[in-house]
Every structure is written in C-alpha cells, then in structure tokens.
Design a protein around this nucleic acid. Structure first.
Lengths: 298, 298
DNA sequence: CGACATCCATTCCAAGAGGTTATAGAAGCT
DNA sequence: AGCTTCTATAACCTCTTGGAATGGATGTCG
C-alpha cells in the first residue's frame, strides 16, 4: 500500500485544476507524466479516481473521497518531517534564519555575532530566500526565524517584531532622465514602468510598487524578476525603475544603476518574525532579543 | 519534500529492530537496499536519523522524533487510501467478502445468491485469505465482511454474529494406525504430531490444536502450513495430523487423507464478521442478514 | 591469539520507473 | 472545414533502485 507523496500531490493538483494540462504546469511536469502518475495511483488503489473527457478530468466518488482526506494526510506528513528536522537542528545547535535580500543590512552580522555570544555552542545559519517566498521559508517551516520587510503575505499567522524603519529610495538606470536629480518626488514616477516582484507575492509586491500611494493611478509593470541579480539587470537595461530601501544603495550598488531619495512615499519597515509554535522556544526568543537590541545600533 | 511511504515504513522497521539486517528481512528487502533507503531519507531531510555502530542502528534525537510521529502518519495515509477504495466499491456496487478456507461451506453459494436477490445491481465478491490473515482482510479494511471460524485474533475489535456450530473431526494420513477407526477419542491424539497454522495466528492456531483441551499437555507440532494445499500435503505425507471441521471431509477430500469424527473436543463455530464502522451500512447489514437467514439451511 | 561471527558500507550490474518530446484521437467552436 | 483544447499513446532516454558479492571494523570464543 505504498504511495509516494508526490503522487498524492499530483492527484490533488489535478483534482483542483480539473485538467491535466493545467495541473501539469502547476506541478512543473509534462502532461504525459501526470497522465501516468494518475493512472498509477488508480491502478494501485484498484479504483477509478477521475472520469476523463475532452472537457477535463472530473472526480469520481472515490476520487472525491481521496481529495477530501489527502490534504490533511499531506499536512501530517510534512509536519512529521519538519519536526524531525527541527529536532536535528536542536541537537546540532543550529538556528536557521531566513531573510529576503532586501532585509539584509548593516545590523545583520552584528545580530549573528551577538547571538553566538549569548548562546555559546549555537550557530545561526543564514539562508537567503527568493522573492517568491516572501516569508523566507518561515511559513513552511524551513527556518526558525526570518528577517523580513513588512508587509508580506502570511504575516498574520506569524509573530512579528518591527526592528526599524528605513526610507524608500528609487533605483534608476543611470541613463534615466531623472538620474541627475538629487531627490525625486514620487508623483514624478507614477507613469514610469516598474520592475516588479512576481504576482504571487501579493501585498509585498504592491508595497514595493507603492500601489496605494499613487492616488488611484494604476502601475505600469515593465518587468518581473525573482532575484536581486535579475532585478538589477532589469533596471540597468532600462526595463523599468523600482523602489528600494535606502540601504540597497550600499548593498546592491552596480554600474548602470543609481539610487536617489524619494519624497512622498512612506518608509519601509524591517522586522524579525517567527512561528507561534516557537513562542516559548528559548533559542528563538534569544535570537529575537538580539535583533531588537541591535536594531538601532549598526 | 516528497517521500515515498515505503521509506517511512523501512525507517520504522529499522528503528524498531535497531538493526539493518533484521529490519531488512522483516521488510523483505536486502540489507544494502535498506542502507540506501535510510541514507536517502536522511539526505532528503538533511538530518541524521541513526548513529551507526557495530552493535546496530540507534536513533538520534531527530530519528526519535520521526519515529514518534511516523506511525500515525502512515495510519492516516492508509485510512485515506482505504476510504477511497471503499467509496469506489460503493459506486461500483461491489461488496467484498473475505473468507478463510475452512469457513467455506455448503451455505456460501446460497448466501451470495440471496444477497444478489435482495440487493439488485450489487455483487458480492469473494476473496479467500491465507491463514496468516485470520480476519480475512477485515482488520485491515481489505474486505467489507468476512466469513470466519471463531476464535480469531482481533476478534474483539470487530462485530461478530455466529452462524452455526460444526463438529471438529480429525484429518489423518490414510496410512495412520487409527485411520481405520470409525470414531476417535481426542485423548488418543494428544501425543500425535500436529500440522499447525503459523504462530502469528495466535488463538486461532491454538483452537485448531485444541491446546486448552489437552488437560495441560503440550502440543507436538510436526509441520506449519499457511494454505489448505500445503496443509493437505503435510498430512498426506505423514508430517502430522490435524483437527478440521466436519465439512472439510467434503471440501478438502484428497487421496491419502481420511477424516474421522472425534469425541472429546468442543465444536467449531462459523461466524460472519464486519467492522464497527459499517454498523449502519445497509449493504453490509443486508449481507449479514442473508448469512443469518441461510445459516441453518444448506 | 587466531578463527569466526556480526554488524554496516561499498561496488557493480541489471532492471525498471519515470520523465520528455512528438503525435494521435476525440470533440466542441467559429 | 479548420482550429483549438483536451487526454492517451509511442518511442526514447536517464536515473533510480534493488540484489549479490565483498570489504572493513569489532566483538567473541575456543
């Protein structure tokens, strides 16, 4: 009765999409591969899970039953694996800290050092997350704590402590007509194309487009990027401009890109976040303490 | 984070046995295969699950955590698959009925026919179970109902209705010194070697050895078999004798084996059993009804 | 003290699972 | 009729996985 959990995930994707083609691209495999996976699952169960037709794949009774139960099974599964990993980290005395690129700043090395001082024997392991993962792996248990920019999707389900605020500047190609200005009013940028984060990052994307500080005007998106490198390239190549924390001017300097202060946009806030399950985890608490203590003293 | 459930089962086996070699034979794979499976699981989790030594495999903290959670995850998994299968059978209008070989009798075809009459469109599917599976697949959800001999292991967790009683006879090799007798007292057989069911069948095995009707004397086991064919062969070859229901004389006649009435042993009881979860399942209830109605009328 | 037994790890090889691309086939839509 | 949009199939390739044999380390026993 052994089934790879990937089969169940594929099954759920097909069940939810109602189509092999759509599910295939969601799960990042080809459509024939999915066809085979589903058939394999059906054979192993000895039960038809879908009725096929030109209009797509519709669940049978058996399929509906499986689709009803599969999510919690997969969740329990992931939980167990996560718990094992966490236990391993505990004995190895490693605290995993995720961060999104833009949250890196001058205080970070100090925080890590201070943590090592307060927790002898422990080590903070930093892992950078792509922008498609706006909670930096906290939401799915990949890390124990995260340094983030607010707001981010899933924020409500996590504990968050704001560390400091930082002005938002704008990153321009050096060839841009405004690149010579010492300071720019945000309203001058309303009609510029922007380099944006992927749509699935929701509120986070909107924040960096300052979507709600444009007095209702819509945003022109000139490019979508997932990583700092691509982001810088896109700006340098003139696909668009972008808001960025002031510190990006130091951390993400690159020929062809200039950073200028912007007036008329709210500042950005950097925070440390952790899972509610770790509220009483002394190691996580210590790390958060370090962050708060060092936030103001770069 | 996809993991084949087989990996988890292997992991549990190693965790429980504390040894790759022993776990390997329990899971029916070679030891190198298990070595690889465990390492694969560890790599995928990024955590050591065992500390290796010549004395065996000892769980790490992470391993202990996983071992603690894995069983219920696997159970939930199996439950979900079982539920899907059951749903499929429901729409296909198939009732699966397990039976152990010795419970087959003259009434069985009548029961199936009567069930088909009462539930038009439905079909009872009979599946014979090996003696190593004394609940005939009911305990693990393979079947919806089962025809069994009492007592059997796991009986307490199931619903049971006795259908009828039947005398126990003895099956002897035709060359046996007592084979000419028309009737035999059980005490005359106390010192004979018996052909027995595998040890894991517990109370069921003891019942057919009449272990508690020997006034304390221990049983000599001449052979262990798992299937009727082997059982008959073992008797015919003189490895031992065995108690059997009277109807076996008709259902399992074979040259070289004779059946004789025995006095001094209690009769055997045939029952229909089902899972408590199906208490209100009208189809199962109907089937049970058919069994009860036809039990007395071969 | 040497032969042996008992672990787990490693190597090599064969078989199979599972993926991809290309294509077929069915059926609605314009 | 031609086009689109589904799923199914075929052909091919790669990588995984399991088995047998073997190695290495370490107790154990005569």
């Amino acid at each position: 009765m052994d089934v790879d959990s990937r089969l169940l995930r594929s099954f759920l994707a097909v069940a939810e999409e109602g189509s092999l083609v759509r599910a295939a691209e969601r799960v990042f495999v080809s459509q024939p591969a999915l066809t085979k996976q589903i058939r394999q699952l059906e054979n192993r169960l000895g039960v038809r899970l879908f009725t096929r037709s030109r209009t797509g794949m519709a669940l049978t009774d058996a399929g509906r039953e499986l689709a009803r139960r599969a999510p919690e099974v997969l969740a329990a599964w992931d939980d167990a694996l996560r718990a094992a990993r966490a236990a391993g980290r505990r004995t190895a005395r490693v605290l995993r800290v995720g961060f999104v690129a833009s949250a890196a700043n001058e205080a970070t090395p100090g925080i890590v050092a201070e943590f090592a001082r307060r927790r002898p024997g422990w080590r903070a392991e930093l892992r950078q997350a792509a922008w498609t993962n706006p909670s930096a792996g906290l939401a799915d248990g990949e890390v124990d704590a995260a340094l983030l920019r607010l707001p981010f999707p899933g924020q409500a389900a996590l504990r968050v402590e704001v560390l400091f605020s930082e002005e938002r500047w704008v990153a321009l190609p050096s060839t841009h007509r405004l690149s010579g200005r010492a300071e720019i009013a945000f309203r001058e940028l309303w009609d510029e194309p922007f380099v944006a984060a992927p749509p699935e990052t929701g509120a986070w994307r909107d924040h960096w487009l300052a979507a709600d500080e444009r007095e209702g005007r819509s945003v022109r998106v000139g490019a979508v990027t997932e990583q700092p490198d691509d982001w810088l390239s896109a700006i340098a190549s003139g696909y668009g401009i972008a808001l960025a924390p002031e510190s990006a001017a130091r951390f993400y300097a690159r020929p062809g890109v200039v950073y200028r202060p912007v007036t008329g946009v709210s500042p950005s806030r950097v925070a440390v976040a952790w899972a509610p399950a770790d509220d009483h985890n002394p190691v996580v608490r210590d790390f958060v303490r370090c962050c708060l203590d060092l936030a103001g003293t770069p």
